[in-house]
């Protein structure tokens, strides 16, 4: 027992020694790292943050604790402003959702993604068009055609929040097809799925994880996924069908692509060493079976990006959001 511990310690020394040889001044957190979640407890971003915290703790990937803090005020503006005000503090990271782009545009609160340092993209969250299983629509085209005929009085799209991702997708559908929905904003994705099951709205664009149980329970039906390729998970989920059986919206004649960023940022003025510490950390997280399991459960798109690639992706996405929101008339006056 004792001897093996000493051996392990020696091995650890050796490893750190080797690592030290490769990068002489590798940075490491010297105190607890605050992990800001710009959304409330229980939502998608919060869940992911707590999974990350749990995995890092369980596999001892970091010596200092990771502390999750929710700063949800003003559609997440509170969290991002906190990041903006923490320039040069390496003990703070934030997990983003689309509100990184939408909140400043919709509310006029002064912050921009490039006032932070991009670290890594962990995953992309898919969006799926859902209808109640009791409704007659089997494809996205059938449904959209019905909406065109019926109009906004008869068809409601339920979604999370206002002028955020769900409403942006809804607006994109409207712009492309000429159909008109009544968009009804709710507090959270779980509420939206339940409202759709109860027949209080006629469709939703829930993330897979928010609606999968209702799909399996035979209450909801997925029509199409807003991605450029099908979700690669082929294990049957409900009714003998897998995520892979859901056509892309483009296949059904609805040429809309939307994915939500689940990425990590640091405050501005982070050094390359500090960024690379976190990049390595999240690479280790991605390698754990727990994380892979979580990704499969939520049918996430598992693209990983870091460094310049990630920055370029974010920049492109920011422009796209501005264009989408401008077209939909969601910009703050």
């Amino acid at each position: 027992m004792n001897r093996s511990r000493i051996a392990a310690a020696a091995a650890a020394l050796l490893v750190t020694g080797l690592a030290g040889a490769t990068s002489a001044v590798a940075w490491e957190p010297t105190k607890a790292v605050e992990f800001i979640v710009p959304a409330g407890t229980g939502g998608g971003a919060d869940q992911m943050a707590r999974v990350l915290q749990g995995i890092i703790q369980k596999h001892e990937l970091m010596k200092q604790p990771l502390v999750v803090i929710n700063k949800a005020g003003g559609a997440g503006a509170e969290g991002f402003l906190d990041m903006k005000g923490s320039a040069g503090n390496p003990h703070k990271i934030v997990i983003t959702l689309s509100n990184l782009f939408t909140t400043p545009l919709a509310t006029g609160v002064p912050f921009k993604w490039d006032e932070m340092t991009p670290v890594a993209m962990l995953a992309l969250d898919e969006f799926v068009l859902w209808v109640n299983a009791k409704s007659p629509y089997k494809t996205a085209k059938e449904y959209v055609d019905a909406v065109k005929d019926g109009g906004a009085a008869k068809f409601q799209m339920g979604g999370t929040g206002s002028k955020q991702e769900d409403q942006i997708i809804t607006a994109a559908i409207e712009q492309q097809t000429g159909a008109k929905f009544t968009y009804v904003p709710y507090k959270g994705g779980g509420d939206v799925a339940a409202q759709l099951v109860g027949g209080h709205v006629t469709s939703s664009v829930n993330n897979p994880i928010e609606a999968v149980s209702q799909w399996r329970g035979g209450e909801l039906r997925p029509l199409c996924v807003f991605d450029n390729q099908r979700i690669p998970l082929k294990e049957p989920v409900a009714d003998g069908k897998s995520w892979n059986d859901i056509p892309t919206c483009k296949e059904s004649g609805l040429d809309i692509e939307y994915l939500m960023l689940r990425g990590i940022f640091m405050p501005a003025k982070a050094t390359a060493d500090q960024v690379s510490f976190y990049v390595e950390l999240f690479k280790k997280v991605r390698a754990t079976p727990d994380w892979q399991d979580f990704m499969a459960k939520g049918a996430f798109n598992t693209t990983f990006l870091a460094g310049e690639e990630y920055r370029a992706w974010v920049a492109k996405e920011a422009d796209r959001h501005r264009a989408l929101m401008e077209k939909a008339g969601f910009l703050a006056k």
């Binding site: 229980g42 707590r50 779980g190 999968v212 149980s213 399996r216 459960k297 939520g298």
Partner: peptide
């Protein structure tokens, strides 16, 4: 899978993390 309270919302997240699908 609808949380009846904020605490239930967090518990719900827990269920998902443990690989249980409420519903």
């Amino acid at each position: 899978g609808i949380p009846g309270s904020p605490t239930a919302a967090v518990l719900l997240g827990g269920l998902l993390i443990w690989g249980l699908q409420p519903g």
